[in-house]
Amino acid sequence: MIEGILVEGLIYALMALGVFVTFRILDFPDLTVDGSFPLGAAIMAAMVVAGANPWFALLVAFAGGVSAGVVTAMIHNKLKVPHLLAGILTMTMLYSINIRVLGNRANIPLIRQETILSQVAAFGAAWFSTEWSMFVFFVIVIVVTKLLLDVFFRTDLGLTIGALGDNPQMVIATGVNPEHLKVIGVALSNGLVAVSGAFAAQFLGFADVNLGLGIIIAGLASVMIGEFLLRSNRIGVLTLRVILGSILFRAIMYLGRFYGYYINLTPNDLKLITGLLIIVSLIITKTRTPRTRPWKPLSNSAIPEPRPATGPAVIEETDQ
């Protein structure tokens, strides 16, 4: 049970990291995710069934997600369409594309196919049970992804993408075309989401065109739960808390599935619960003690007393 929750949480953490990149860093609420997640799953399943190397299939899934992100960003940039609508457009088109990728079917089973996870289970069989082998594997995958993201958002390009979500005018002032940054950010995000979908298909044992239904909400819930756990402005902590949030979210969903029937809950109610979870998170965030010190146009503090420069400068976020 616990290893199941952990593995699920880690798989979906990849998706939540993608959602975090668009929603929180880029300030580009991207709904493409609902289409790029099953796209990753569909590419993985179709290629594995066709006999391709599953690692190569993973790479293609990533590329598929990246392309979906590029399409959304281009629709937004070139046609000046609001980001929400651009995402919905791509997501809707992806529904048809996903069915095509699955070979004009709504799903493909992956039972008894050679996948990355079956390789992992075979490799780890000497030391662990299948579930714990997967757990170890996904810990490695997530840690590597997280560290890569942390490094990326410390590079000049990554920092500028961060600034775009905060203050687009400033990014323009430094001579960077914000449209390029949006393409890079949204593409990266959807690449992560598609990889998450590819792993989910292997874990579940099938790819389904409806796999992505409401996945964006699950990702957003994970990001928001994570924000309750830790508070910081350090990118390393920000990505860590997304992963923790994803695991916690899966645990809550598991409890809902497992014990929900005592109060007549069915698996169909889980989306409602997810939505309510987000609403509760929003209410708590709104009513919590004010964290922002609003900028006062006419303050008398010309030069505030300097703060001690020593010690770690972990500052609470000033704006959410």
Partner: peptide, 10 residues
């Protein structure tokens, strides 16, 4: 970010 104008690299 402000130090160098133009597109940034990795």
């Amino acid at each position: 970010i402000a130090y160098k104008k133009g597109m940034k690299g990795l």
